[in-house]
């Protein structure tokens, strides 16, 4: 008889809420539950469903969202910046769901790596050991903030898997290109983002394949996207098709569009203003009309995890 030791990420069948139970909850009830914040996180923990079909999913206790109020799902999935599908916040939820296929999907690992290749997303997630859930703050450069329960895997796993060569210093990521929609995007070519390799190896850097324990919706960057919670949201490139290890710093799309307003680093920093508005505080999405603002935290509250990366770097110059 074969004795099988459960992997750390596996959860028992009995822990999984039967689909019938959570399907019964209507949207308003769902919202209310999530509005309770910590209680919402508990609900998620027990009710979490595989982010990419067939993978078990457990909440990472280091990022359980303690003390954070999770942004309701309908808001996370209908207030998006995804310029390939239009420049208004409400455009992507409509335009990204009109026949745009994100399945099947392949990701190419290229450049200065010992293990280049093209992988189907499902295979890649399997190779990364499945998915986990992390609740992260999200801060947009436009001075609004959310709290999002992501499902996915640590980017570090993918970097280790690709086995970059010693001369590789950066990871350049490229998004899909949909010619039909390019005219709306306001920029040419595919969206490009990048990280320094040590940033990509930081424990916070995450590749999301789901949110709220469900497969990630198209408007949020299906089927896989970058999440770097200590950086402004535009670093979180969506719908990635290519990951290339490079020796030189990639020029990201927003830097290309407005070099004086958006840099390569894009670290959340309340003391370095955008040329057109203050970054000292932020509006919480879903807060309503009289909710006011909350103070923006250095590195979006992740100073402990990432401050060491930027020692000696002039953050005013390298914004």
């Amino acid at each position: 008889m074969r004795i099988r030791t459960p992997k750390s990420w596996e959860i028992r069948e009995s822990d999984v809420t039967p689909e019938g139970v959570y399907r019964l909850r209507n949207r308003r009830d769902f919202l209310k539950t999530l509005g309770l914040g910590a209680a919402g996180a508990l609900f998620l923990r027990s009710g979490a469903r595989a982010a990419t079909t067939g993978f078990p999913d457990t909440l990472n206790p280091d990022y359980s969202g303690a003390g954070l109020k999770v942004t309701p799902y309908p808001l996370v999935t209908s207030y998006n910046n995804f310029y390939e599908f239009g420049t208004d916040k409400g455009d992507p939820v409509v335009n990204a769901n009109q026949g745009w296929k994100t399945e099947p999907w392949t990701v190419e690992i290229a450049g200065l790596a010992n293990k280049p290749g093209t992988w189907d997303v499902e295979d890649l997630v399997r190779k990364m050991g499945g998915v986990e859930q992390r609740i992260y703050r999200h801060r947009c450069v436009e001075a609004w903030a959310m709290v999002i329960p992501w499902d996915g895997f640590a980017l570090r796993k993918l970097v280790d898997f690709a086995d970059p060569k010693p001369e590789a210093k950066y990871l350049k990521m490229t998004s899909f290109r949909d010619n039909v929609r390019d005219r709306d995007a306001g920029f040419d070519g595919p969206y490009i983002e990048g990280l320094r390799l040590d940033e990509a190896r930081n424990e916070l850097a995450f590749i999301a394949t789901g949110i709220y324990g469900k497969a990630i919706p198209n408007q949020n960057g299906a089927p896989l996207r970058l999440v770097t919670p200590w950086k402004y949201g535009f670093k979180g490139i969506k719908s990635i098709v290519r990951m290339e290890f490079t020796a030189d710093e990639p020029v990201n799309t927003w830097q290309q569009l407005a070099r004086d307003e958006y840099g390569f680093y894009a670290n959340v920093n309340p003391t370095v203003d955008h040329p057109r508005w203050s970054q000292a505080s932020e509006r919480v999405i879903g807060g309503g009309v009289f909710s006011g603002r909350q103070a923006t935290l250095m590195f979006n509250g992740y100073e402990k995890q990432v401050a060491a990366l930027y020692q000696g770097l002039n953050l005013r110059k390298y914004f």
Binding site: K89, R283, G287, V289
Partner: peptide, 13 residues
């Protein structure tokens, strides 16, 4: 209850 507008009604207004 348009969710895009409810996300930040003040910004919309």
């Amino acid at each position: 209850q348009n969710p895009t507008v409810l996300a930040d009604p003040l910004k919309y207004l």
